[in-house]
Design a protein around this nucleic acid. Sequence first.
DNA 1: GATAAGATGTTA
DNA 2: AACATCTTATCA
Length: 195
Amino acid sequence: MSIIPHSFYLQNTLIVARELLGKVLFRRIDSKIFRGMIVETEAYLPNDPASHSFHGRTKRTDAMFGQPGTLYIYLIYGLYHCLNIVTERENFGAAVLIRALEDLDHEHDMSGPGKICKVMNIGMDCNHRHIFSHQSDIWIENGEKVSVQNIVQTTRVGITKATEQPWRFYIRGNKSVSRTCINFGARNGTRTHTP
DNA sequence: GATAAGATGTTA
DNA sequence: AACATCTTATCA
């Protein structure tokens, strides 16, 4: 496997969100290495009321305006952390939220953004760090190519502001896609009930 | 299986 | 007061 180059994250945010599916997030903690295949993502853009960057660069969202490949970490509901990767050009204010991983070692449940950060011990100390260096203790490598017919594109999760956009991507049928997806759209892309 | 409530800290 | 969530409890 090879590490994803810096230039990958310079692309359009929706392209990055879609193409991150199937790639593998690595995290080293002491001598232990976690490996999780990305199975669900969401895109956040600067002119989107649901995006943290909507109100401009603040102390909280500073990392979201960093160079592409920067990590943006935030605390959600006072309890969990969420991991984002900055996209497009520096100072733009876009990012991809990593929503779910399939643990390639089958030891942990990372079927949700809060669960990923809990299992992989990703906290505010990772904010502003970069995802494109192999020397780091967090990086992404190429994984399996996901064919177009196995990618579902639909609305995001937990958004209460604005008109919601179909900016969530996940791998059809994957068992590690977050539970919220099951409740509002099903893992296979067909609704199980009306919300 | 589904649905509701509660936990918790920062600032949307 | 709201929030890019998760776990537990209580139905069925």
